[in-house]
């Protein structure tokens, strides 16, 4: 049963990954990318890593891909024209693809030689089999890898500040709403009751 499920999800994952790069319409590409993320999450569930699966869906599908879709829908590019440069960019693509393939090969080789735990890698203090995998990740992340974890947090913070600095510009002549000022107003500052004489005006 689990095996059948694995092959179904793996097939969907591969097929949608192929469609991501072959689809004519970029919006369809992003939708297929979302399907690929989703199938990957299903594979994580199958190996019992439900926490990672849910985080994958929440972060990538629920937030990143939404913004991605948002941007792609706003683009107005002639994609037929973009395809003309295909042969020119192919060598670069092949190099990147080749590097990825070699890396994957290394990973597969280390798995064949022996799992990471045997080589003296970190293990959780209470054995993982006794915990839910949320707790297990927590134990490892906040003990063995606490500095790496904090460092990656800092890197993300710097990236975020960088993005804000790059896009923030204060334009002149824009009248902004100051909510604090607005709430601070008192009745006698803004309302004046006058007696207006007939034919006299204010």
């Amino acid at each position: 049963m689990v095996n059948i499920a694995f092959f179904v999800f793996a097939a969907i994952l591969l097929a949608s990954a192929v469609r991501v790069i072959t689809a004519k319409n970029p919006v369809h590409s992003v939708l297929f990318l979302i399907l690929a993320f989703f199938s990957a999450a299903a594979l994580f569930v199958l190996i019992g890593a439900e926490f990672v699966a849910m985080i994958l869906v929440i972060v990538y599908v629920g937030a990143v891909a939404v913004l991605f879709l948002f941007v792609v829908m706003m683009l107005d590019i002639n994609f037929q024209e973009l395809r003309h440069g295909f042969l020119r960019y192919m060598p670069v693509g092949l190099v990147v693809g080749g590097i990825l393939a070699v890396e994957l090969g290394f990973l597969a080789a280390t798995q064949l030689i022996g799992p990471v735990e045997a080589a003296g890698g970190p293990t959780a203090i209470p054995p993982v089999s006794e915990l839910t995998n949320t707790q297990a990740i927590g134990h490892i992340l906040y003990t063995d890898y606490v500095y790496a974890f904090q460092a990656s947090g800092l890197i993300l913070l710097v990236a975020m500040i960088g993005a804000i600095v790059l896009t923030l510009r204060s334009r002149k002549g824009v009248r902004r709403q100051e909510i604090g000022q607005q709430l601070d107003r008192k009745r006698d500052q803004v309302v004046a009751v006058r007696k207006v004489p007939t034919r006299g005006g204010v």
């Binding site: 979302i34 439900e50 926490f51 849910m54 985080i55 869906v57 929440i58 599908v61 629920g62 937030a63 939404v66 879709l69 839910t132 995998n133 949320t134």
Partner: peptide, 16 residues
């Protein structure tokens, strides 16, 4: 085990 995360994930997909 991760019921809350599941709910959160599904409700964040609603936007699609």
């Amino acid at each position: 085990n991760v019921g809350v995360l599941y709910l959160f994930a599904i409700s964040s997909l609603g936007v699609y």
